[in-house]
Design a protein around this nucleic acid. Structure first.
Lengths: 110, 110
DNA sequence: TTTGGATGCATAAGAAAATTATGTATGTTT
DNA sequence: AAACATACATAATTTTCTTATGCATCCAAA
């Protein structure tokens, strides 16, 4: 995985769930791959523990479904979790803007 | 500190040193504060171990100076370290762009 | 037909990278 | 004198990820 992703991964997951309403783990990994043109690959060892933690914190709820013979575990944001998600997404946006400020500092025109 | 900073911190330090040539630790913390309008505060417990590690890897070299009665440890990127720095900064830029793609997904116009 | 690849979830051991707390020291401001 | 800013350092702990492994199903290719 991209080392710069550290710390941002759980918020990215919340963002995708916030946008898409209901997703399962594997779908999240594919969506991130697609959005970033294969640049970001979420590993399972990182993904599932985060989903379980968010579920334990009641930010997410899960429902298992069998689709085409395979089990999928669908996650969505709880009403209670929505405030948390919105907050963290706003922080991630602010962070992205700060990154841009650092990476493309304005020339001093003095 | 901003939790999303995790993982990006060492590259941010390299970026500042790459832009400014020569900086000491405290100066780096102040520069990041300034650039991000107080949004990002680098803690000392994160900063100094990173500087020491980069020095051990010979990406940075350090020189101690006494200025106005206080000791400062100035760091700069080594010739060898420059390639590493340029690489990581490019990766951080790519990451920032990926973040934007995730945070502001294009509407599907199908 | 069986092998490999994609789909799908899970977890354990270890490493990496931060937080939090603490310590030292000097200079400046109140 | 106390508080705050400047300046560096590190130890213990926690968070978070990597790497490896395991299980199971479906589909395509050989």
């Amino acid at each position: 995985m991209n080392q710069h992703l550290k710390g941002s991964l759980s918020t990215i997951i919340l963002k995708l769930l916030h946008d898409n309403g209901r997703m399962y783990g594997y779908e999240i990994t594919q969506k991130v791959k697609e959005l970033t043109q294969d640049d970001i690959q979420i590993t399972e060892g990182a993904l599932y523990p985060i989903l379980h933690k968010l579920e334990a914190e009641e930010v997410l709820t899960a429902e298992t479904e069998k689709v085409d013979g395979r089990v999928r575990k669908y996650y969505k944001i709880t009403p209670k979790g929505n405030a948390v998600a919105v907050d963290r997404i706003a922080e991630l946006k602010a962070f992205a803007e700060n990154l841009n400020l650092i990476l493309n500092p304005k020339l001093s025109l003095s």
